[in-house]
Design a protein around this nucleic acid. Structure first.
Lengths: 187, 187
DNA sequence: GTTACTATACCGTCCAGCCGGTACAGTCCT
DNA sequence: AGGACTGTACCGGCTGGACGGTATAGTAAC
């Protein structure tokens, strides 16, 4: 073992990624410990060493989702000018929708986790409440800003569930228009 | 037996409603035949008489969702003037978001069904494609119309999952503004 | 030898689906 | 009228398999 903590985190990450893959390929109900272990190239014992219960695994999946979203948004924020009104909202759009196929798998995994343990969504709800308050306080047109947020949610969900009806071109139009509306609601 | 078909359909409906209740109260993973049977006041044998497999039950749940949505939209359409541009889109907003707690339970049930059998979502996707084409052909601003649709989706999902962060007042504002944008995208 | 981790065998529970039965209404034959 | 039979609706126990979790033995690095 070259770097214990590195190995730890990479093994744990590998398992999480494997879990996302399993959900994406076979559906939320087939998210079993055996399936995840096999997909991760780990024995069931190994899996349970890292995540002692299924609940722990699902929790880690949900936490990973939140962390990753935050990172994406933060990264997108860096690409916007500081004085930009509605920068947070725009970063949400870009961050959540730009990061390729990754977010789809994670969204599906979150839904799968929620199916087994609905309380895992509490964190999401809390975050949404906070962000909504921020929106209400900072935007000049709350309803529009909220609609942008909801549309981002809707698109993410559709893509996670693979039921998005849009062509690439249409999707691009939509993202572009979302940014426009975000601008409008801050003027 | 006074009216055979009436008894049959009511028993089947009772089971479907019970299934929705089970999902809403205990989560998608706890949607077992026993739980549904008990909630419907029917024995497991009786349940399996009406829906011979779990897959059949889930399929009926998904179908019920689609039918109910169509009815809601159709009903909402009746309340709008015929010459109204964007009447279909507005009917979607009103129909999908106005019908109280019913649609939440059905949305959750659909998600639960999809967890067990992702192919059940195919119908939803097809419908979405059709509606998107309709939108693209009829609206003057496709992106805005699509955003409205996505926001409706997002709000429905959040409410189905009980993670909507909005107060009643905020929700009202949002619906109102959705109708505004729907108008704009048809002028 | 201790820590970090893997592998396999096994256990108990849960659950979908099956099956043999019950009740009862209608129908047909006599 | 009444017995024989049929189809519909429903019951509840059973089973086989899947799955979450445990136990234990083993390996590799330091």
């Amino acid at each position: 073992m070259v770097e214990p903590s590195a190995v730890i985190s990479s093994a744990r990450d590998r398992i999480l990624e494997a879990a996302e893959r399993v959900v994406g390929e076979t559906g939320a109900a087939k998210l079993t410990l055996d399936a995840v272990a096999q997909a991760a190239g780990v024995s069931k014992g190994g899996l349970l060493y890292h995540y002692p219960t299924k609940e722990a695994l699902l929790g880690a999946l949900a936490e990973r989702y939140v962390r990753s979203m935050e990172q994406c948004v933060e990264a997108a924020k860096g690409g916007l000018s500081e004085g930009d009104h509605g920068r947070d909202l725009k970063a949400c759009i870009v961050g959540a929708l730009a990061s390729g196929s990754r977010s789809k798998a994670m969204g599906a995994a979150l839904l799968a986790a929620a199916a087994n343990d609905p309380t895992l969504l509490d964190v999401i709800r809390e975050r949404a409440v906070l962000f909504t308050e921020h929106l209400a306080a900072s935007s000049s047109d709350f309803a529009r800003a909220a609609i942008v947020m909801l549309a981002v949610d809707g698109l993410m969900m559709r893509e996670s569930l693979r039921i998005s009806p849009f062509t690439d071109e249409q999707r691009e139009q939509i993202v572009h228009e979302l940014l426009n509306i975000a601008d409008e609601s801050y003027r």
